[in-house]
């Protein structure tokens, strides 16, 4: 640092000179990345006739917004969106209660068999979902939960990845604060509730973000357990429209846009949390 003044000039120039090339490359890459969205948006505003025109038009002749209402008539889009939101929120609430408690327990309590239990739990994380789906389906079936919201929410509350994430987080919290609370006479629960929980907020936000991503994108499980169109989440509802009998792309694109939008908006608002979460854990999304 102290030597910097003599050196910076030459080195800095070496480091910064070809920036316009860097920007050119990045711009091209970014345009490639977002062009599908632009095409999607453009198509969602075309009439059906225009959408099948050869060669295709890039900008719609005139903006045909009706596709955005047609999608609600073709499929029960509103209730599907409701299911996706309810399932996402339901899971997050359940996880924040169940996982936060368990993660804290594993991070701070001493009890017989603790390490063994945690190891068994971790091994679940290594197992691909497909291995569990058939018995999970059987359980949901025997509970009479097929085609209901609990089928989408309950099994996913017990999320090992989330447990691992939050336990790691609790381990990074300084022990001294909790010890001080204990010494001042607060019990385990009191300490947890009024000292630990407020500090755990960043960890819980990361958990909620991952859960939200996972839930919004999920297809296989809801596809298997849900059968009524008006109870399906959007992912399943849109996926079932793929059949060749329905190729009204403007309507499909309107639906896709509406399905993407909420999560993208959440992301733009919580951008920093998303990126930090992925960068530190790799994300299971």
């Amino acid at each position: 640092m102290s030597r910097k003044p003599e050196r910076t000039d030459g080195v800095e120039r070496k480091f910064t000179k070809p920036k316009y090339l860097v920007h050119l490359t990045l711009l091209v890459a970014v345009i490639v990345m977002i062009s599908p969205y632009l095409w999607q948006l453009a198509t969602s505003l075309k009439t059906f006739e225009e959408s099948v025109q050869v060669p295709p038009t890039t900008i719609p002749d005139d903006f045909y917004f009706e596709n955005y209402s047609t999608i609600f008539e073709v499929i029960p889009f509103a209730s599907m969106m409701g299911t996706t939101i309810a399932m996402t929120v339901g899971r997050i609430i359940g996880q924040l209660v169940v996982i936060t408690l368990a993660a804290y327990g594993f991070a701070r309590f001493e009890f017989p068999g603790k390490n063994l239990i945690f190891l068994v739990f971790l091994s679940v994380m290594m197992v691909p979902d497909e291995l569990l789906i058939i018995p999970q389906y059987e359980i949901i079936q025997s509970l009479g939960w097929l085609d209901t919201l609990p089928a989408l929410i309950v099994p996913r509350i017990f999320w090992v990845f989330g447990l691992f994430l939050l336990r790691q987080f609790f381990l990074t919290l300084p022990l001294e604060i909790e010890e001080a609370a204990r010494i001042d006479g607060a019990g385990r629960f009191r300490t947890f509730w009024s000292v630990v929980l407020p500090l755990a907020k960043p960890g819980m936000i990361t958990l909620a973000i991952f859960s939200c991503l996972f839930s919004w994108k999920e297809l296989l499980w809801p596809l298997i357990v849900m059968s009524s169109p008006d109870k399906m989440p959007v992912s399943v509802g849109l996926a079932t429209l793929r059949g060749s009998f329905f190729v009204d792309y403007p309507v499909l694109m309107a639906g896709s846009t509406l399905a993407m939008l909420p999560l993208i908006l959440v992301f733009i608002f919580l951008q920093r949390h998303f990126i930090e979460g992925i960068a530190t854990t790799g994300g299971k999304a």
């Binding site: 990345m33 095409w39 959007v234 399943v236 849109l238 429209l241 793929r242 399905a259 993407m260």
Partner: peptide, 22 residues
């Protein structure tokens, strides 16, 4: 740049797949 590169990660794959079909 980061946000734009990251956009597909927060996109519902089913919806993205429909777009790519087109």
């Amino acid at each position: 740049y980061r946000v734009l590169f990251f956009l597909p990660v927060v996109t519902m794959p089913v919806a993205a797949a429909l777009v790519w079909r087109l």
